[in-house]
């Protein structure tokens, strides 16, 4: 990373990530992950799959999330994925992925487009049933879907039984945090 003189802010506006515990759940703003979208160019899906496999980047099927350190990814739309990588090593996420896919895929930096709030703890289904239509109780681990939460478009990624990421638009980070916090107070 270049040694420039500008200091970043977290999506919620702090200099360090926000964190709050309400009843059995904890909300944590996650900022140490770089994101890039990878979309296969027309007719080049096989090449993209092969390049990803060689580089150890998972490209899961529809509605799925998959982690394979240091990468992880979830499905966005047909032939399109959001790839996660550690921010410390992959800050310029597009530049990091270009050599992998060459011109077989369109790659777009997405790190700062999103706020990721991880919700961890027991009783997550009881919380999420007040938030969105995702059936968290029966969703398998690794389920990833986009839906609406309090009028906001979000990705909901079930990383484990007790860890769900809610990934929403960065500009409405405060509104999303407020929605999660209010629901948690209401439920627990």
């Amino acid at each position: 990373m270049a040694e420039h003189r500008l200091k970043p802010l977290c999506p919620l506006g702090g200099t360090s990530p926000a964190r709050a515990s309400i009843g059995p759940v904890t909300l944590t703003e996650v900022v140490d992950v770089a994101l890039a979208s990878v979309s296969a160019r027309l007719g080049r899906t096989a090449e993209v799959a092969a390049s990803a496999a060689a580089a150890g980047i998972p490209l899961p099927g529809p509605g799925r999330f998959e982690a394979r350190a240091p990468f992880a990814a979830f499905w966005l739309s047909p032939e399109s994925w959001m790839v996660e990588a550690p921010f410390a090593t992959h800050e310029d996420s597009r530049a990091a992925l270009l050599p992998v896919f060459g011109d077989a895929a369109s790659i777009t930096e997405q790190t700062d487009a999103w706020v990721r709030i991880d919700v961890t703890g027991e009783g997550l289904p009881a919380l999420f049933e007040r938030l969105c239509n995702v059936d968290l109780a029966t969703a398998p681990e690794g389920a990833a879907t986009r839906t609406i939460l309090e009028h906001m478009g979000v990705y909901v990624v079930k990383r484990g039984a007790a860890q769900v990421s809610v990934i929403g638009a960065r500009s409405s980070a405060a509104a999303l945090w407020h929605a999660l916090e209010t629901a948690a107070h209401s439920v627990f």
């Binding site: 739309s77 047909p78 986009r146 839906t147 478009g153």
Partner: peptide, 14 residues
């Protein structure tokens, strides 16, 4: 019966 266009805007954008 009507064939109509729907856009999965808050989904996969299909």
């Amino acid at each position: 019966l009507h064939r109509e266009l729907w856009y999965h805007e808050q989904g996969d954008r299909s």
